[in-house]
């Protein structure tokens, strides 16, 4: 079997893009101290809204804008629950995923079977959205590590009480981060429906949002780490698809398990390293998953 390394790399870039967007968004959210398990729900709604907008307008880029908007909007109930009603973040995130999956399935019915307008490839035959995703990596790295706003966002995530005492608006900053995470997840989901599958099918994100959550852990909460994780995942996906196409004598179902098993494997390895490393403590933001309630 001949495998052209350049073609393979292009496929890897494409396969990793949805996860890259969603994981970068979640990275910012978690750095602000919020654990949003609703990524899968926001992605699927982005996939639907993006597809619908692209189909009706004929312009894929309008689709991505709509997807970002839909992702950010559907994240708002989660933000309200966790930031203002002090609800448990794990449960609220799950609710967001279940709600998003249901909503997308409900509104997606009329769009089943229609085809999205094709996208013209960008420079080097690589989709513009893939370029955007790649550009977001240094951008988010710079924002988190070199900008003043990023420093404040990280302060809120490390110790919300201290940040509050310094006068930073913990809830407003987290609200912004959650909306940004939703928009990024929406774009990631839309990449699946608009740029790769070109169709809408129920449940088409197939756990990509959960894999994105795992990749944030894998990255030790850093943007370059997220890119590495997304590429690792993209590599496994492309490889298993290639093996399926080549008709390897392994049941298809086993090959399609590979991305999920690989996710578990990297999650285990990285968690074990964090658990048993000499440096005390994990790389997770200090206030991750905890609710903030200012008594004064």
């Amino acid at each position: 079997m001949m495998i052209d390394p350049v073609a393979l790399f292009l496929l890897l870039l494409s396969a990793s893009t949805p996860i890259l967007f969603a994981a970068l968004g979640e990275l910012v959210v978690e750095r602000a101290g919020v654990l949003n398990l609703g990524v899968e729900g926001m992605m699927i709604l982005g996939a639907l809204a993006g597809f619908a907008a692209a189909y009706h307008s004929g312009n894929p880029f309008l689709g991505f804008a709509a997807a970002a908007l839909a992702g950010a909007l559907v994240a708002l109930p989660f933000a309200a629950l966790t930031q203002f009603l002090l609800a448990n973040q794990v449960a609220s995130g799950l609710a967001l995923t279940l709600f998003g999956l249901g909503l997308a399935a409900m509104f997606g019915k009329p769009l089943e079977g229609v085809k999205a307008p094709g996208m013209a490839p960008g420079p080097f035959r690589i989709n513009w959205i893939v370029w955007l995703g790649l550009a977001m990596v240094p951008l988010i790295w710079w924002f988190l590590n070199r900008s003043r706003s990023g420093l404040i966002l990280r302060a809120v995530g490390e110790n919300h009480d201290a940040a509050h005492a310094l006068g930073y608006k913990v809830r407003a900053i987290r609200l912004g981060a959650i909306a940004f995470g939703g928009a990024m997840a929406g774009i990631g989901g839309a990449y699946i429906s608009i740029a790769t599958v070109l169709q809408w099918t129920e449940g088409m994100t197939a756990g990509a949002g959960w894999i994105a959550l795992a990749i944030v852990v894998f990255s030790s909460w850093s943007a370059p780490g997220v890119l590495a994780g997304a590429w690792l995942f993209g590599g496994v996906t492309v490889l298993q698809l290639r093996l399926q196409a080549a008709g390897v004598r392994v049941p298809v179902q086993f090959l399609s398990m590979a991305p999920y098993l690989a996710t578990i494997l990297v999650l285990v390895l990285i968690s074990a390293r964090q658990k048993y490393s000499r440096r005390a403590g994990s790389a997770a933001p200090g206030s991750l998953g905890q609710n903030f309630h200012a008594l004064r």
Partner: peptide, 8 residues
Amino acid sequence: CGASEILV
């Protein structure tokens, strides 16, 4: 290993 039971 300390892996998140949620994700696994």
